[in-house]
Design a protein around this nucleic acid. Structure first.
Lengths: 336, 336
DNA sequence: CTGAAAGCGCTTACAG
DNA sequence: CTGAAAGCGCTTACAG
């Protein structure tokens, strides 16, 4: 391993001068700089990040909170996986590395302690464990932080326009002549109001077009998952077999619902129309006719990186940044 | 941020003594140790990894090579995603953090330089870019390294029993009375012989049971992907419409093949039997009748962590560790 | 059993 | 424009 002292010996300059040349800051004779850079290249010099980090107090590390919990798919999750692929690219080209924050690190450690331990420069909360109280204290820790999904007070969140998408879905159904419409939701938590937001937008959209949503037509599935969608649809349908359309809060729930409907002999969209959410690759590969909303994962990832970089540079950013979700019109909505 | 010097002042001991107490090594009066530990707890002391790393030459960082290339799904990949979830758990409980190695880091950097830069203690190659020459030099770098998929000379690889699975599939078909059997393969590369291994095992299995594989019944799909499976099946079927069974090298190819077969009116398994590979969640969710092989991702991940830890501790490990894949018998094979 | 000294590789003021 | 000194937080021999 070659150090700046080796380069100092090689070139005859002092260590601080080598440092300046390598980092391109401060005034330096251009010949000096060139000589040093040339020597560094020849010697295959690589800075040692630990040393750099120790003296600059910058680890160039971004902590990532991405938990692999029940019913979720961790790295395999349709939204989060894609998000991470892109976020990683953005953040790396800015010279940062990703570091997964974990509580079972080294036999148990809080996120904050893990952050201190690695001295991370910033944090992105992708998917924490439900209502983990530590998430809230993150904002207080003083470490720059963004969130791509959870609405955490004091943390800049980049998230889809759920409400507006709900309104959009309502318009689609009404435009097609539907009046009796069901909603399959999922549990909402304090920090994770996606389901409620979509529902509220949906009701508002219907209302604006003169249709009042009947509370009877709402069913909350137990998880963001197909089995729960199956069960939810069953309950809803047993209560209200007269509905002609359904807005499902996510594609996996929509998929489960379709499974149930198929079981009771209902055809889509002839008997029942349906709109999902996510454009989940898993679902759209196999139910290519399902109309749905595509969350703009690339944009969310880009903005997350951009906002985080901005906060780290000392410039504050808004509490919430909303990103439009695109409606993907396929053929699961019948015109009555 | 509280340092060992703060603890030294607080307790009246010297920094080296604090260090010893914290790390539990060397001889120390148990009362001294307790006092120091107590003080550390009260003060909320967290060691600074950069400083630790600088003096011990151990970063406690494991570099991960996981590329998001064409036709792959990066974090979303069915095998790699699950693998990483588990590997991460194992490696974290041993006190290591994951660090993604990247070439587009900071405007372009080789893997090895990235390793030097962060001073990683070990590397896991999950999924590199096809035939990237740098992968081969990794073994020479002296950094402990394991691979979970690619067979890299000099690097310990943990991988499924592809050959044996091929044999198994052959027995299943023959047992059910099939004689004219096709194979849908995928490109093999120097370091990635999975397709060839499965094929060779398959041929061997047939041969052992007195059936010679007809070269005409082999078709190589262009990618490990459904569209390629569709096209491959088309070619194969146009050439040999008399086959009654197909072994597909992965579930996505199997899925594409089934799409084609459905298009030409063939039913599974009535007209054609099929066996896939991977137990891909995407596929098995939607084609729940597909018999397939499940790679033991948990075991592969565990062994990868175990082997890497072993190598880092100085104990050599075998070139290749094979992990059995489990046959999942569902109902896509018809008994003739 | 405990501590003074030196070092890990880099950077930051501060002189000159 | 360049360098001597000190420091980042920790650990490793080596004394005592």
């Amino acid at each position: 391993m070659v150090t700046i002292y080796d380069l100092a010996k090689l070139t005859g300059f002092s260590a601080p001068t080598i440092s300046k040349a390598l980092n391109g800051n401060g005034k330096l004779n251009s010949k000096t700089r060139e000589k040093i850079l040339e020597a560094a290249r020849k010697a295959g010099y690589q800075p040692n990040m630990a040393a750099k980090s120790l003296s600059t107090k910058q680890s160039k590390l971004i902590g990532v909170i991405l938990e692999d919990q029940t019913m979720m798919r961790g790295f395999e999750h349709p939204l989060f996986g894609g998000l991470m692929n892109r976020f990683r690219k953005e953040i790396e080209s800015a010279g940062y590395d990703l570091l997964f924050l974990s509580k079972n690190f080294n036999g148990g450690m809080s996120y904050i302690n893990h952050c201190k331990y690695r001295d991370v420069d910033g944090i992105i909360v992708v998917n924490p464990v439900d209502d983990d109280p530590e998430i809230f204290s993150l904002a207080q820790s003083g470490i720059p932080c963004v969130s791509t999904n959870e609405l955490i007070p004091g943390v800049c969140t980049i998230v889809s326009e759920n409400f507006e998408s709900g309104e959009y879905a309502a318009r689609e159904f009404v435009k097609a002549g539907h009046k009796k419409i069901g909603f399959l939701g999922a549990p909402s938590r304090q920090t994770s109001p996606a389901s409620i937001e979509r529902f509220e937008g949906f009701k508002k959209g219907l209302c604006d077009l003169g249709i009042e949503f009947d509370d009877d037509c709402y069913e909350e599935c137990e998880f963001w998952h197909e089995t729960a969608g199956f069960e939810g649809m069953k309950k809803l349908f047993n209560r209200r077999s007269d509905i002609t359309a359904i807005f499902a809060v996510c594609d996996t729930i929509a998929y489960g619902a379709m499974q149930y409907l198929a079981e009771v002999g209902k055809k889509i969209p002839d008997d029942i129309s349906i709109i999902g959410f996510d454009d989940d690759a898993i679902v759209s590969d196999f139910k290519p006719f399902l109309s749905t909303f595509r969350q703009n994962r690339e944009k969310i990832a880009e903005l997350s990186a951009e906002m985080l970089l901005q906060i780290m540079s000392g410039v504050p950013c808004p509490d919430v940044v909303r990103v439009p979700a695109e409606f993907i019109s396929r053929s699961s909505v019948k015109v009555l």
